[in-house]
Computed example of a mutant assay.
Amino acid sequence: MSAPVVLITGALTGIGSATARAFAREGAKLIVSGRHDDAGAKLVTELKELGGEAAFIRADVRREEDLRALVDQTVATFGRLDIAVNNAGTEGTPGPVTEQTVESYAATFDSNVLGTLLSMKHELRVMQAQGGGAIVNVSSVLGQAAFANTSVYTASKHAVEGLTKAAALEGAPYGVRVNAVAPGPIDTGMLDRFTGGSAEGKAQLVATIPLQRAGAPDEIAQTILFLASEKASFITGHIVNADGGKRAAL
């Protein structure tokens, strides 16, 4: 596909921005979204320098009116929507189950689960009508596993993977593919927060990965590009592990 139209939520940092840069290098037309105008403008400038057409639209994935407008503005800007990457999310508040609250649950599930659901609702609305497209949700190694002190985040990523499979079945008759990528520990700000900013904590986590290193955001971006491409044209409803062997060792 030449110059696909790509929408990325949670595009301003980490895996999201790496994915935006990867698509820009391929000459894509990009709508990048997040909640910070200054960071959005900076990213758009970078994407244009890399060869992509790009615009920033501010949106909060917890608000359906924002997502409806985001998708409609994408179509108004570029005429269609070919690829959507639903990356917006949060690690929430790690800690024991006994310390979780209604508020910590809602904060995590509203971003990770409701945000993914509402994003797909409006992306599918457009893609089904136009007769095709590809959606890639960002899950986690915890989407099919569990570790202590990650209960709410783990539950949210289980939900993202369930949503992905159900949406894939609904989108398939219209030529819309829906998959997810499940990263292991990736060298981002989220990893720093999970390990408390401790070099020792990070080293201990990395030691549990068979490849003996954390992943790079661009490695996840390349996996997303593959799932969104015609090279993956017969793949839908699939969760692709990109975790350095972490899930295989569980």
Score class of each variant (00 low, 15 high):
residue 3 A to G: 00
residue 6 V to E: 09
residue 7 L to G: 04
residue 8 I to A: 04
residue 9 T to M: 06
residue 10 G to T: 13
residue 12 L to E: 06
residue 14 G to T: 06
residue 22 A to H: 02
residue 26 E to A: 14
residue 28 A to G: 12
residue 29 K to L: 13
residue 29 K to H: 13
residue 34 G to Y: 08
residue 36 H to A: 10
residue 39 A to L: 11
residue 42 K to C: 00
residue 42 K to T: 13
residue 47 L to K: 02
residue 47 L to S: 02
residue 47 L to E: 07
residue 48 K to I: 13
residue 50 L to A: 12
residue 51 G to I: 08
residue 52 G to P: 01
residue 54 A to P: 14
residue 55 A to T: 10
residue 55 A to F: 00
residue 58 R to I: 04
residue 63 R to E: 13
residue 63 R to G: 00
residue 66 D to N: 13
residue 69 A to M: 12
residue 71 V to R: 07
residue 71 V to E: 13
residue 73 Q to M: 06
residue 76 A to L: 06
residue 76 A to N: 12
residue 78 F to A: 00
residue 82 D to A: 00
residue 82 D to M: 02
residue 83 I to C: 03
residue 90 T to R: 01
residue 90 T to W: 00
residue 91 E to Q: 09
residue 91 E to S: 12
residue 92 G to M: 05
residue 94 P to G: 07
residue 105 Y to M: 11
residue 108 T to G: 10
residue 109 F to C: 01
residue 113 V to C: 09
residue 115 G to I: 05
residue 119 S to F: 15
residue 119 S to T: 15
residue 121 K to F: 05
residue 123 E to S: 09
residue 123 E to H: 07
residue 130 Q to C: 05
residue 131 G to P: 12
residue 131 G to N: 07
residue 137 N to I: 07
residue 138 V to W: 13
residue 140 S to D: 09
residue 141 V to K: 04
residue 143 G to E: 04
residue 144 Q to L: 12
residue 144 Q to R: 13
residue 145 A to Q: 11
residue 151 S to D: 01
residue 158 H to N: 00
residue 165 K to W: 06
residue 165 K to C: 03
residue 170 E to K: 09
residue 173 P to N: 04
residue 173 P to A: 03
residue 173 P to I: 01
residue 179 N to S: 11
residue 179 N to W: 10
residue 181 V to F: 05
residue 181 V to E: 03
residue 182 A to S: 14
residue 182 A to L: 10
residue 183 P to K: 12
residue 189 G to R: 12
residue 191 L to M: 08
residue 195 T to W: 01
residue 195 T to V: 12
residue 197 G to E: 10
residue 198 S to F: 06
residue 202 K to W: 05
residue 203 A to H: 07
residue 206 V to M: 09
residue 207 A to G: 01
residue 208 T to W: 00
residue 212 Q to V: 04
residue 214 A to C: 11
residue 219 E to T: 09
residue 220 I to S: 08
residue 224 I to W: 08
residue 229 S to L: 05
residue 239 I to P: 04
residue 239 I to N: 07
residue 243 D to V: 12
residue 248 A to F: 03
residue 249 A to Q: 12
residue 250 L to W: 14
